[in-house]
Design a protein around this nucleic acid. Structure first.
Lengths: 145, 145
DNA sequence: ACCTCAGTTGCGAATTGTTCGCAGCTGGTG
DNA sequence: CACCAGCTGCGAACAATTCGCAACTGAGGT
């Protein structure tokens, strides 16, 4: 799923798009590159403070917006209030959220992608984006009945 | 898509669940019954004020929560910040949001429902809920090139 | 190495959407 | 018709995100 997670690749992606490389941005890229989950802005802020104790949450938000607009990170709004972020460095995928633990599982399904386009077309629209989230509990777990 | 939209049916649904029927709640039910779109809490508040000029936005939120928990209305979080509400009085459907106008089109697709279950199963989960939103622009409109 | 300045940052305050605390009110039951 | 659990209005509290502004800093040119 991950094509290239090196910080240098992210920095290069920024340079190529004319995004100035500051210490804060490099630190955020580093955190994003390491992240195995889908951290929120405050999660990221907390992690980045290890390297940049005085970095502001606003800067984290601003940087994430810049990276989002550049197509380098993806922003997700799962269920509740806050946004979650992940690198957009692999092929498209959707998410299944464990309703009990909040754990997020990534998956792809070409069939469902195709269907979404077909549905939009059927309704007279050209698909420009979509959001598919599945919520579930681990099969065979205690809460079955 | 709509099975029964009469205010009396909603009131009865409340009574049968032990939800006390106040003037405010009846007015909110009335607004929801009439709504052809997917109004936000403030939309609903604004409409309800016609009948109850002193109703508080907090009451609207509280009532919507009560109705949501009772399974009488559904709460959606499309793209941006605020929640949108609709009666849960028909069969399940998903939404396509016009990326330009914000207009919401409802649709159902048994195939996609089936696929979602299949995917969850494949990942070792039992599907308990899902969210599918398509974003698109009207095909053949100006912004094609 | 140094200058320059547009772009970036930190701070705290503003915004937006939603919820809470509490004193007063009210539906529906006896 | 009285009672009281549950409901309401109000304004304040909250949470996530954005903004305004003065100070700072990368990276290109010299």
């Amino acid at each position: 799923m991950v094509v290239d997670r090196s910080v240098e690749a992210l920095n290069e992606a920024c340079r190529s798009r004319g995004i100035r490389l500051t210490g804060q941005r490099k630190a955020i890229s580093e955190v994003m590159a390491r992240a195995q989950d889908h951290p929120s802005a405050t999660d990221i802020h907390e992690l980045v403070t290890r390297k940049h104790p005085r970095i502001s949450l606003a800067t984290v938000y601003r940087t994430l917006s810049v990276l989002r607009d550049a197509g380098i990170v993806e922003e997700h709004r799962f269920g509740e209030g806050r946004c979650h972020y992940e690198l957009a460095d692999g092929p498209h995928h959707d998410h299944l959220i464990d309703a009990e633990t909040g754990q997020i599982v990534e998956f792809t399904d070409p069939e469902i992608e195709r269907l979404q386009h077909a549905i939009a077309e059927r309704l007279g629209y050209r698909l420009t984006g979509h959001k598919l989230e599945l919520y579930g509990v681990r099969a065979g777990d205690a809460d079955q009945g």
